[in-house]
Design a protein around this nucleic acid. Structure first.
Lengths: 211, 211
DNA sequence: CAGGAAAACTGACAATTGTCATGTTTTGAC
DNA sequence: GTCAAAACATGACAATTGTCAGTTTTCCTG
């Protein structure tokens, strides 16, 4: 992006704070721009016909929410809700569209990013369809550690509710809870309240691979 | 694309015929360009660690294979194998990259397309994680009819092996076969050899929705 | 800090799905 | 046409997962 363009963006951007549990936008909503995540974490989920909310992605610092819908000129196919207090900045879609069509480098940049997302989505599809719930839960913890880190005591920095964990994994809340209990009994993880920590990484990774 | 660009593309493109069962490229392969599907159908699949091949997408006329990998400058994350004799034309990646960075409209066009694919991938994730195998099989038949049509006798124009159907749905081959038998007994579909036809669309759609 | 709501947890059971074993049919090469 | 290999099909059973019902714990609000 040129300096002039950068300036225009920073002039028009609006910073917004979103508390944990609050929505940034909802499925089916028409978006007038995109939201850059400066801080915090958002879950991107889609309501399934049976009433459950499948979490498709967790977005953190650097992610751009709503990009897909704005580019495709469609309403959002996902809901975005904060799972950790957030700071986001809004960029109107006019700016995006203008920059896209005037600046090929920007377009290619966005394209690369979207190509990456698409690959990740493919991976999720394979995991969902070919791995057991137990494997997916194990994988989820490793993913959470790798992407959001852990505190000094070894607990995952991003604490999700059991229901959210179940919705990431795509299973019933009770099943997720049961598997968490099992993992704890097996000494793979430790828990403290709703916080979860990885205790035996090696064996947890084994579990994710299927024994 | 300008006329000069179009000319360059049509000068460099190489038409190739791929027989049913043959691969266009494989997972992990480095691609030197993309393949436009002129005719036929390809399955795009990914090997899961347990040895099963999950079909992520079926691509037909108009689809561009390898686009994601070429844009992201990565090796392919999927394998492409013909499930119906194909005619594809190859476009070297240099041409793609050059056109992308010189022609914003082309980039935006590709971007829109990829945004659409991403939405579809999200939908697949939700289906995989929230629907039963029975629902997914029913949905698969409706999808096959809507996207590939049916012949005069009402059989799906695209005939997949039972194994491929299982791999689309993400289940064991035996489970897929059993469900196909059940659907037939229930009068939802009809079969003739490996061909499958939709017999009672309304009830099949009900089944896809969950009873 | 009391009380109520929400979240976490557990048990019992049913439904779904996968696996293995085996038989049947179809297909394709010769 | 024949024969072997592959694909299709079914049964029996085990493993996984979901559902419902109920208890305990945690969290939040006044």
């Amino acid at each position: 992006m040129s300096k002039a363009e950068l300036k225009k963006v920073s002039d028009t951007k609006i910073t917004k704070f979103v508390k944990k549990g609050e929505a940034i936008f909802s499925e089916g909503e028409k978006l007038n721009g995109v939201y850059c995540v400066r801080d915090g974490v958002s879950k991107l989920s889609k309501l399934s016909p049976n009433g459950k909310d499948q979490i498709v992605k967790l977005a953190t610092q650097g992610a751009v929410l709503g990009q897909r819908s704005v580019i495709a000129q469609e309403t959002s196919n996902l809901s975005a809700v904060a799972v950790k207090d957030m700071e986001v900045c809004f960029i109107p879609k006019d700016i995006i569209e203008e920059t896209l069509s005037s600046n090929p480098d920007f377009a290619v940049e966005v394209l690369r990013h979207m190509a990456h997302d698409l690959k990740e989505a493919d991976d999720v599809i394979v995991n969902m369809s070919q791995k057991t719930v137990k494997q997916r839960v194990a994988e989820a913890f490793i993913y959470l550690r790798d992407n959001f880190g852990e505190d000094k005591e070894g607990y995952l920095s991003l604490t999700l509710s059991r229901e959210d964990i179940a919705n990431v994994v795509g299973t019933a809340t009770e099943s997720a809870i049961r598997i968490i209990s099992d993992f704890k009994k097996l000494g793979l993880i430790k828990t403290s309240g709703k916080m979860i920590g990885i205790y035996d990484e090696k064996r947890l990774i084994e579990m994710a691979k299927g024994h």
